[in-house]
């Protein structure tokens, strides 16, 4: 079980959260069809740190981004969505 530090609610059990997609797969309205297909339907799928979009679905329902190691589940750099540098 991962403990995810929600920027609004503090540390909460990961059962309260749902994974949406890696940040690389967030699509934008102004993308070309080729970029859209690439972003929607292919992945780096790294073993190691991955920047991801999650939602605190069963808590404050906010969207957040975080960096999570896909091998160790270590979570760092959690931000409200839109606050990415």
């Amino acid at each position: 079980m991962m403990l995810i530090p929600c920027p609004h609610c503090g540390p909460r059990a990961h059962a309260e959260f749902t994974f949406d997609r890696p940040v690389e797969a967030i699509t934008r309205p102004d993308e070309t069809p080729d970029a859209l297909v690439r972003n929607l339907f292919s992945r780096d799928n790294p073993r190691g740190p991955s920047r991801e979009l999650w939602r605190h679905t069963y808590g404050c329902r906010s969207w957040i981004t975080l960096t999570r190691d896909t091998a160790t589940h270590a979570i760092t750099d959690v931000r409200p969505v839109g606050a990415d540098a």
Partner: peptide, 13 residues
């Protein structure tokens, strides 16, 4: 478990 992982270690819920 519904998120990307290579951990081979799932959550109890």
């Amino acid at each position: 478990d519904a998120y990307p992982t290579y951990s081979q270690r799932g959550a109890p819920h």
